[in-house]
Simulated scan of single mutants.
Amino acid sequence: MTVRVRRTTPRWHTHELRLGTDEVTKRYHDTQAEPAEREWRALVLLQRHAPGLAPRPLRRTPGRHPDLVMSRLPGEPLRGTPVAGPALVALADSVARLLDAVPPAAAAALPERRAGRAEATAQIRQWYARRTPAAREPGVAAVLAEGMRWLERPWPAVAEEAGLEPVLGQGDGNLANFLWDGERVRVVDFEESGRSDRAFELAEITEHVGSWVDPGTAFDAEEFLGLVPLDAGERVRLLECRRLIALVWLLMLTRDDPARPRNPRGTVRAQAARLDALLGQVC
């Protein structure tokens, strides 16, 4: 039996899933081959270096809308659930394993993940220059202005990329991409994956709107981060990365269509408060 599921990701792509008993077929609606190539490459690397953590790549078909067939994993998405106790520990363990899995030399050879620092910064500037009415509301506008002032300041030297060990970054921290079976967490959705670093990938998870916006989600970001070992420099970089991603999300959320909102009422103001807290935080 095959079930067809259409899924929309929160950024730029849409794809369709066909769920079989043992296999999942992912059809990419992006007419470019890049998302499929990124996903296939990541799954091949993880099958080699961390088997069982992600779907096993089975086959792919090229074309205008490429298909990728992978093994079907057990478990349910963590998004919309209370991510605490054993589930939180398992999530931290799997994320740490993912970040340690691919040898640095192999990770260094990868193209940079989508929406890395440079791409995110350019997107922020573009969106800020074309602010929507939601971005001009007094409380939101003030936080955005402070965020833009922060964006133009140099990062601390210890937070810069130079000397960081490269990792395979999954590229999409949506908790829906982490499947919990009661014992283990496995990871799916690598179409934005590529070369990254530990701090950026952890910030991607903690600052993704899916980590807090849904009723039923209970995810303590600070507790989660305390379960993943980081050195002092990575902790400084982590705060800067969290600020950057939170600023991206605030501007993205202000662009939501008010006639067809995808998030609960008050989400923009709640995101502004989250960014404001991060801007005031001292590492």
Results as ranks from 00 to 15, higher is better:
L99I: 00
A157Q: 05
R114Q: 04
R130P: 03
L175K: 10
G147S: 09
P138F: 10
P133V: 12
V143L: 12
R113E: 11
L68I: 02
R72T: 11
L88F: 04
V102M: 00
A107I: 09
P77S: 04
A142E: 13
T61S: 09
P156V: 06
M148N: 08
G116A: 04
R153V: 06
R136Y: 12
W155L: 10
V143M: 02
L99T: 13
A84G: 05
P154N: 06
Q170N: 13
A134V: 15
P103H: 06
A108Y: 00
P82F: 11
A159S: 00
D189S: 00
V89M: 00
L179W: 09
A106Q: 15
V143C: 13
E146M: 06
R130N: 11
L110S: 10
E152P: 09
A84W: 10
E165N: 04
A115Y: 14
R131S: 06
A162R: 01
A108F: 10
Q123C: 11
Y128Q: 06
L98C: 07
E119W: 01
F190R: 02
G75M: 12
V158I: 05
A115N: 10
P74E: 12
V89P: 00
T81C: 01
D181E: 06
E76M: 08
I124Y: 08
R125E: 09
L68E: 03
V69Y: 09
R60C: 07
A122N: 05
A90Q: 08
E137V: 15
P74M: 01
A118M: 05
R79Y: 00
S71N: 01
E119H: 04
L164G: 00
